[in-house]
Each structure stands twice: as C-alpha cells, then as structure tokens.
Design a protein around this nucleic acid. Sequence first.
DNA 1: CCCTGATTCGC
DNA 2: GCGAATCAGG
Length: 214
Amino acid sequence: MSWTDERIDRLKSMWEKGLTASQIADELGGVSRNAVIGKAHRLGLKSRPSPVKANEGEAKPAPKPKAKPVEKAAAPRAAAPAPERSPSAAAPAQATPTPRSDMPKIVSIGPGGFMRQGPGDQQAPIPPAPPRRLVPAKPSPEIADKTSLLDLSDRVCRWPMGHPGEPDFHFCGEAVNPGFPYCVEHCGRAYQAQLPRGVRRPPPPMPFGGPRVR
DNA sequence: CCCTGATTCGC
DNA sequence: GCGAATCAGG
C-alpha cells in the first residue's frame, strides 16, 4: 500500500482525533502501526499524549548507556554540537486566544427546519460515524426491534447507530426530515455549518473515520 | 505480557 | 520516503 493523498488525509484526521496508531493502522488497512507512526512523524504531526514521553526538559543525571547491539560502529552522528535554540526561531507563535466575539453568530434554518450551526457552535463530539461502509446486517433477535438494513426506506432516518459489524448495529429509523435521509435530529448532526464561502476560513478536511469503540 | 508512541536506520 | 526493529513508559 502506498500513501495516497486520500490515505494521508484520513491518517491526519484520525491522528488529530486522538485515535491510536494501531486503530488508524487497521482502519486504513494495509499498513502497520509503525508505518502509521512513521508517516505521522514525517508529516510533521507528531507528539500527542505519549505514554513514554511524560517527562521532558531536564533532569538527566542518570543517562542510560544501554548496550545497543544495533548500534554499529557508525560514524559519530552528533559530532557537531547542536547550536542552542535560535532566538529568532523562538518567536511567540502562540495562537491568539481571543475568540473574536464580534462574530454575529449566524443561525439559520435549513430546508428541513433544523438549525444550522456555525463552526464556533460546534459541540464537542461529532462521534457517530455517518455513512461509512455498510456490511450486511445479519438478522438476529437482538436487532428485531431495531431498524435493520432491510428496513431502510426513504421514509425513515438512515443514521447508523453503532458500528457496522457490531451485533447491535442498526439505523435510527425515525421519520425523516422531508427531503433528507435523516430525521430532524440527525440532520442537525449530518449537515453542520456550511456558511457562506467568505465567512468560513479553514474547512480542513473532516473526513469520516469516526471513532471506533472497542 | 499487553498496550502506547518515539526513534533509528537499512532499504 | 518508507517501515521493521527497537526502545521505553504505562
């Protein structure tokens, strides 16, 4: 497998969502956990709560001259002492904490009557992974009440509940918001904030790849 | 042991 | 650039 733009995109997305490298790896398929981590680093998006990097900054009175067999008699890599942090490089690159409260906070009503939200109104989680690949739901008493794949029509909400493949995976099944594949509630989830072109600045790719609960 | 991310280094 | 091997903490 190679790192296509699309795969890189998904990697970024998931990585920033806090999915673990292994999750990302088998979500993407065809790559190992190491591959994902390696790629993440090369992409520059590294560091995230790492279990092994809790401490950093100082206190190294006990260096660990571990015998590294893999360490060949290679040329001294760090021959040149790294110059201290360039003062200019330590520019205050902090993101502006000012939330710009002068934005009118646009709230419009969508065609179905649901509320459109601005990006700032984004609620914390957008967890449920909307349309992803559907796998055949096997009929079982477990989901007798639930709306199964076979019960779908253009009159019921097709918002997936749970993840495909899981025993209780089913669909919302509520009456749809006319003209939409989902009920009013899930329309609100599915169709968030598409503000006028000018207003919306960074619409970074928000592909799906939703959380997978294990 | 399992998991995690970080790093190294041959390819 | 890629990722297996390795390291290292939880």
